[in-house]
């Protein structure tokens, strides 16, 4: 399976990556090779094999429901590009 330039553009947009037009053919080639590798795995018979959700053969450890994080707003907002009245400011989001 090989990817079309339009699909590469779409994937880049979904990931919010800015890519140069002249790089698209090489991205298409690289990504297509990854897909070809996946195709190779698809050829294996996995009937009855439970899909693996994680490479570690362990289950999730749980945390007690206790407040452990103090307010550190000032420290976090010191490295934010823009804040006002305790809010993080971002370019206007229009619904």
């Amino acid at each position: 399976m090989s990817l079309e330039p339009s699909q590469v553009k779409e994937i880049a947009h979904l990931a919010r990556l800015a890519i140069e037009e002249h790089d698209i053919p090489s991205y298409a080639k690289n990504l297509s090779e990854i897909l070809a590798f996946v195709e190779q795995m698809n050829a294996q018979d996995t009937e009855g094999v439970e899909p693996m959700a994680h490479p570690l053969d362990m289950t999730q450890r749980l945390r007690p429901d206790e407040v452990t994080e103090p307010d550190q707003r000032e420290r976090f907002q010191a490295i934010a590009p823009a804040t006002e009245a305790g809010l993080y400011l971002v370019p206007k989001v229009i619904e």
Binding site: E66, V67, E69, R73, A85, G86, L87
Partner: peptide, 24 residues
């Protein structure tokens, strides 16, 4: 719950903006 699903920050309603938002 008293805290977030994946962090130990409080979930109390009505706090000043971003005072209950930790690194996670």
């Amino acid at each position: 719950t008293k805290t977030k699903i994946f962090s130990g920050a409080s979930t109390a309603y009505g706090a000043a903006p971003n005072t209950q938002a930790c690194a996670i």
